[in-house]
Amino acid sequence: MEKIPNNRAWWLVLPVFLLVAFSALIPLMTVVNYSVQDIFGPGQAYYVGTEWFKEVLADERLQDSLIRQFVFSGFVLLIQIPLGIGVALMMPKSGVKGSLCLILIAIPLLIPWNVVGTIWQIFARGDIGLFGWGINQLGIDYNYTGDTLDAWLTVLLMDVWHWTPLVALLCYSGLRAIPEAFYQAAEIDRASKWAVFRYIQLPRLKSVLIIAVLLRFMDSFMIYIEPFVLTGGGPGSSTTFLSQTLTTMAIGQFDLGRAAAFSLIYFLIVLLISWLFFTAITHADKEK
């Protein structure tokens, strides 16, 4: 649709602009302020220039959690996207069964994040949790509170459980939007199931998949509550992700300047990645 140039449309956007500016710009400015000062308490602050940035960039603890974060997000995407597509393909096309599936699959999304952590904290325990108990019964020594790898896998599994439904539902709605004629044409052209998926379903899922990847990447990048409840970041700092490092630094240790400098770097990373995604989406829209 051709859009009409009209600058008065700004009046319609103004409330959103003000609301979001209030919630986003003021805190952002504050963070920038913190990042160039050493703050001991109210009214006690010293200007330190770019010292914090220099320190943060050289801080190995932060670098580690950054790397950990990227690895984690990578795995999240690698597992959840194909799994989500697969589930979407299996879902019944319509009818009562369809909406029932939809509701059941959406359940994990509607659980508060700390409850998600709690559920898995219980579920994965070797003594009172079905999952942990089951694994131990199989003769595998599993203990997510003690073993680094176990903790990692548990967090990953929890995230897959929690968020694959989102990917699945996105893909499901994408699939539903494909006109029946395409399947009929493929049927008549004698396309194999794989060809149908490869040449009809996948290309038409592209725009939904970009959204799915975007949302999943961002949300896994700022994952905080769930692993915090589940493992507390441990054992050691093996499941301490970016957000948690940051929160501990700012609130736990009241190391405001360093936390602010780190936040800004974090923010810049997110900004760059989301810009890349956004550009990809708008270009995908344009091609249509």
Partner: peptide, 14 residues
């Protein structure tokens, strides 16, 4: 048999 539909049905990634 082959069928041609009312609206163009093409494999748009090819």
């Amino acid at each position: 048999i082959a069928q041609v539909f009312q609206f163009p049905v093409i494999y748009d990634s090819m």
